[in-house]
Design a protein around this nucleic acid. Structure first.
Lengths: 207, 207
DNA sequence: TACGTAAACTAACGTTCGTTAGGTATGCCA
DNA sequence: TGGCATACCTAACGAACGTTAGTTTACGTA
């Protein structure tokens, strides 16, 4: 039946139920392909009744996008200031990013994919936030390069690749999956920092 | 069927114009948020006139998705059979993937993001193709691990991460950008194979 | 018991959607 | 020259859209 498992719906307000269900539907079908009647039917009420709790369809999207943006920024601030190597900072950021995404896969997916349906001026605000987030990670990468910790590469390109991998998690992560968020974070960090190629001095021989 | 079948690549048929414009709009606004009237207006005709060239809106999406799927599979076959190391095979696949994406960013983006709006049975067919593609890359990764070329890791996870990075290119690549497809392919391969951390024996010290 | 409020309902609004029907101008070929 | 196909047009269909208005129901409190 339901797209959402509002397991303890007794504890949730109607508004929260609506928001959670909207998040799940927006992720699954996309914002534009989700109608207020779809949403209402999933919640178990009529479409018109939604407007007792929410001003508009787009307000739901705004709420999801900006709430997630705020969460992502929150993680960042605590990490940048720590007195550790850039390698370790990058590990911490990856771990925080993964934790946030896996804790709320649907909201993250909406945040990452459906923001383009925001109308102005929210769209411009949102894009500015995104740009700032990427910039701050890019700065860390650049500093790591300048410090000699990282191989000299294009910091913008590395950052984008890193973020693609992190954000791609929303597309395959399942709560009942075999990989824990911690395992994912470590796997990602190892992959990006030390690479896939085996570094034994004797390289693999083919026979 | 007329004598004047269009062979020239310079001049596009109306149908091709419609398909190209649809691809661009589907990427930019998403399939659901793009109306036939939007598409028609962009092409410079009336919405109803589109149906002289195309059966339905969804046929446009099907055409884009399955054409791209076919192209991706085409690249794969030639690489798997080559008598080179798995490392080199992975490099070749990454290069081919990047080339394909950068050659047609919009179609790739639609292929990667809008497929969920396909209706059955096309959706099931499409998902099967996607699954097969991932599986074949995963097999290469696993073989590389078994051969000792790659560090022992979760091949499924590594493949997903790799594909996320590759597919993420559609989100930031611009034709007039500073990075060439070749540079992107090499950068990606280096990053995934040898990692970000500098491997000089004297590691940077922090105090 | 009466009242106020919140949250649901039914009905409907104006708009937009994908798509079809039917007509018209243009150009090729018998 | 006449006939026919192509490619466009206008008009309109029924359905679905987001949203509003007005009404009913359920319930805690005076």
């Amino acid at each position: 039946m339901g797209v959402t498992e509002n397991q303890s719906s007794a504890k949730l307000t109607r508004k929260e139920q609506i928001e959670n269900t909207a998040t799940a539907l927006f992720k699954e079908r996309g914002f534009s392909a989700t109608s207020m009647r779809d949403l209402a039917s999933e919640v178990g009420i009529e479409a018109a009744s939604i407007y007792a709790h929410v001003r508009s369809k787009e307000e739901l999207l705004q709420s999801i996008c900006f709430k997630m943006a705020q969460e992502f920024f929150g993680e960042l601030a605590g990490i940048e200031a720590q007195p550790v190597t850039f390698t370790q900072k990058l590990r911490l950021i990856m771990a925080a990013h993964v934790k946030l995404i896996t804790r709320n896969v649907a909201a993250s997916a909406v945040f990452l994919q459906e923001w383009r349906h925001l109308s102005e001026p929210h769209l411009a605000d949102f894009l500015q936030l995104r740009e700032k987030y990427e910039q701050r990670i890019r700065t860390l990468v650049r500093q790591g390069i300048e410090a000699g910790e990282f191989v000299p590469t294009d910091d913008r390109f590395v950052t984008r690749t890193l973020l693609s991998s992190l954000n791609g998690i929303t597309q395959w992560y399942k709560l009942d999956g075999e990989l824990s968020p911690e395992a994912i974070a470590n796997g990602l960090a190892d992959l990006f920092l030390t690479g896939l190629v085996s570094h034994k001095d004797d390289r693999p021989k083919y026979h």
